[in-house]
Simulated assay, not measured.
Amino acid sequence: MSFGLCINRNWALLTQENRLVQASAANDRSSEMLGVVIWSCRETGRAIVWCADHRDLAHYDGAPRGLTRVCVEAGDLVEVALMSDSAIRRCRSLKMVEPGYFPEIANELKGRTRAIAAA
């Protein structure tokens, strides 16, 4: 499966869900959507997520103290609850949807020589 097709597959899965989320998020500064982890740290639980809307990357700072840490790796498909935090897009929560959904994503992104257009 080619890189472009995989991203388009993500977008196709998310289009209808995002419309519902965007409509309900009009009064809330947070929203939920799917994304693919492109970087993670096992030690801290932090992760960077490429979201289905192809906008800014989302930063996850790990589970708050007292909550169980979600272990994710590059290529995992996750559902994130996003919130705007000034100039940085942050994940309020992160939930595993499908581990190993796109394991070669980091290498594919490193090898790109031009921008990836939204589907």
Rank of each mutant, 00 (worst) to 15 (best):
104 E>G: 14
95 K>L: 10
85 D>S: 06
20 L>E: 04
77 L>K: 14
48 I>N: 04
55 R>T: 03
105 I>H: 11
107 N>A: 15
49 V>K: 04
8 N>L: 03
2 S>G: 11
30 S>N: 08
94 L>T: 06
53 D>C: 14
51 C>Y: 01
77 L>V: 11
92 R>P: 08
97 V>C: 08
11 W>I: 06
26 A>Q: 13
63 A>I: 01
12 A>W: 08
41 C>I: 13
72 V>S: 09
115 A>T: 15
24 S>F: 00
110 K>P: 03
30 S>D: 05
117 A>C: 07
13 L>Q: 05
80 V>H: 00
74 A>N: 01
100 G>E: 01
9 R>N: 13
116 I>Q: 04
94 L>H: 05
26 A>V: 15
87 A>D: 11
109 L>M: 09
57 L>W: 07
106 A>P: 07
83 M>V: 08
31 S>F: 07
89 R>F: 00
66 G>S: 00
82 L>C: 08
28 D>H: 08
56 D>M: 03
72 V>E: 07
81 A>K: 10
33 M>W: 07
105 I>N: 06
81 A>F: 07
61 D>L: 02
11 W>V: 11
64 P>W: 12
75 G>K: 14
48 I>V: 08
101 Y>W: 03
72 V>F: 05
103 P>W: 02
31 S>E: 15
90 R>V: 08
45 G>C: 12
1 M>G: 11
104 E>Q: 09
77 L>P: 14
101 Y>C: 01
55 R>G: 07
14 L>F: 04
112 R>M: 01
113 T>A: 11
108 E>A: 06
95 K>D: 15
102 F>L: 12
115 A>M: 12
49 V>F: 00
85 D>H: 11
15 T>A: 13
32 E>N: 10
79 E>W: 06
62 G>W: 05
56 D>G: 10
30 S>I: 06
26 A>R: 01
38 I>V: 02
18 N>G: 12
112 R>P: 11
89 R>D: 09
29 R>S: 09
65 R>M: 14
51 C>A: 00
15 T>D: 10
61 D>V: 00
22 Q>R: 13
38 I>R: 03
63 A>N: 10
115 A>S: 15
118 A>W: 12
34 L>N: 05
53 D>E: 02
81 A>C: 13
39 W>T: 04
14 L>N: 06
48 I>L: 11
58 A>T: 01
36 V>M: 09
47 A>S: 00
119 A>L: 08
18 N>D: 13
117 A>K: 13
63 A>K: 04
21 V>T: 03
27 N>Y: 02
42 R>N: 15
37 V>H: 09
12 A>C: 11
78 V>T: 00
110 K>W: 08
93 S>W: 11
37 V>S: 04
54 H>K: 11
96 M>D: 02
117 A>Q: 07
75 G>F: 02
40 S>E: 03
